[in-house]
Simulated scan of single mutants.
Amino acid sequence: MADQFELIKKSILEFETEKIVDHIKKALKSGASPTEIIEKGIRPGAEIAGDKFDKCEFYLPELVMAGEVIKSGISILEPLLTKDKSRHKGTVITATVQGDLHDIGKDLVSVMLKGNGFKVIDLGVDVPPEKVVKAVKESDAGIICLSILLTPAYEGLSATLKALKDNNLRKKVKVVLGGAAVSLETVERYGADYYGHDSNEAVEICKKIMSK
C-alpha cells in the first residue's frame, strides 16, 4: 500500500493526471480510505510541490500543473468523502485572495474540510473582497479560510479584511490564513485570527472554532 501512496505523490510532482487517477483507483480497491489517500499520498505531494516552489525548483507554471493533477485526484475522492450528510459541523468559505491565482492549498483544505463534515463554499482564486463579503452575507459561514502564496497578494488580503470590517461582518466570522506567503506574523499584522501551517492544521483549527 505504501508504494501506491508514493506513486500518487510522484504523479503530482511529474504532472501526470492520468496516472494519479489510476493510482488512486488502485489504492481504493486495495482498501485504502479516501482520507488515508489524501493524508499519505496527495498532501505530501502538494507539500513537496510547495517546497519546490519556495526553493525556485518549481515556478508558477509547474505549480499550476501540479494543482491540476491534484484536482483530478480529488475529484475521485470527493464524492466518497461527502456521502455522510449527518456529520455537518458548520460552513466554511474558502478562497485564494485577490492577486493570487494558485489553488493547491485551497483545494486540499476544501476537500479535507468536506471529509470532516463541513459544508464548504469554495470561491476559487483571485477572489475580490466584495465576493467574499457577498458569500458571508448569503451563508451561515462562521469561518473563512484564505490562501496566499504570493507576497504581492497581501494587498488583496488587507482589502478583504477591511471589506469584512466595513460591512460589519468581521465579528461574524473567524479568519484562518494559510499558504507559503503566510506566517503567524502575517496573522497579527493584518488582524486575522488563526494561521494554519498546512491543510491538516487548518482543518483542526476549524474543528476547534466550531466546538466553542
Score class of each variant (00 low, 15 high):
V133G: 05
L108M: 15
T91I: 13
E138R: 10
L184T: 12
P129I: 01
E185S: 14
A163S: 15
V109M: 06
H102G: 01
G41N: 11
C145G: 15
I37N: 00
I104G: 00
E14Y: 06
K40L: 13
E6D: 14
A181M: 10
D3H: 14
D107N: 15
E188H: 11
G178C: 12
V136L: 04
D103T: 10
D140W: 04
A141M: 12
E138V: 02
L146D: 00
T94P: 01
A202P: 00
T186I: 12
V176G: 00
L7W: 04
V173N: 05
Y190W: 14
N200L: 15
K174A: 14
K137P: 02
G179Y: 06
Q98F: 13
C206E: 02
V120M: 11
I148H: 02
L28Y: 08
A46N: 02
Y59P: 00
A27N: 08
Y195F: 15
E16C: 01
Y59W: 14
E39N: 12
K137F: 10
L177Q: 01
V136C: 08
D193G: 11
G105P: 01
A192L: 13
D54C: 01
A66R: 00
S72Y: 07
C56A: 13
R189A: 14
K162F: 08
S158F: 10
K119T: 15
V132K: 00
V136S: 05
A32T: 08
N167H: 15
D84N: 15
L13T: 03
P152Q: 11
K9M: 08
T91Y: 03
D84E: 14
K134F: 06
K26R: 14
V182E: 04
I93W: 02
G179W: 09
T96P: 06
G90T: 07
Y195V: 08
L7C: 04
D100A: 09
G179T: 10
V136N: 00
L63C: 00
H23C: 02
M65R: 08
L157R: 04
A95W: 01
T82E: 14
L7F: 10
Y154P: 03
L161V: 11
C206N: 05
I209F: 06
A192P: 08
T96H: 05
E18F: 02
S33D: 11
G156D: 11
V120R: 05
A32V: 09
A192Q: 12
E47D: 12
V173C: 11
I74S: 03
V133N: 02
A2Q: 13
L177R: 00
L146E: 03
S33W: 03
I76A: 06
I143T: 14
S110E: 12
F5C: 09
K26E: 14
T17K: 13
I37D: 05
T17S: 12
K89C: 06
E185N: 13
I205D: 05
A27M: 07
L157Y: 05
K55C: 01
D198R: 03
L184A: 10
C145H: 02
K171E: 15
A180V: 08
E47Q: 14
A95I: 01
E130W: 05
V97E: 02
G99R: 09
F58M: 08
